[in-house]
Amino acid sequence: MSKKQVDQNQIKDIAKLAHIPISDIESQQLAKDFAKTLAVVDQLKTADVSRIDSTHQVTAFKNVTREDKVDESLSFTQAEALANAPQQKDGFFLVPKVLTTEDN
């Protein structure tokens, strides 16, 4: 089993992307754990895939689609939609002010 190197900065980047705050001590420990996990996953590299097409799915399904029909019985009422919202206002979900811009 080859030894994988994962440094603390990589851990911090991943934590940032995942929106999970971690301490320095945690990042040190996680770096070690990630290295072990990656080493296990690395074993996959020994498999011979030269004769296998790239795989996007493992379900073997394809073209699972629906007709363009509205079914309001599946929809929530406004009150149902907002039932779990920590804060709401005039039928809207209310969240703390967002500073950055939309991104799609």
Binding site: K69, V70, E72, L74, F76, F92
Partner: peptide, 21 residues
């Protein structure tokens, strides 16, 4: 299967379901 009607809905959050929420 929620209605695609974002501009004429009149009220917010009336065309939603577990998928689009």
């Amino acid at each position: 299967a929620c209605k695609n009607d974002p501009f004429a809905a009149g009220k917010p959050n009336i065309h939603t379901c577990p998928v689009c929420l």
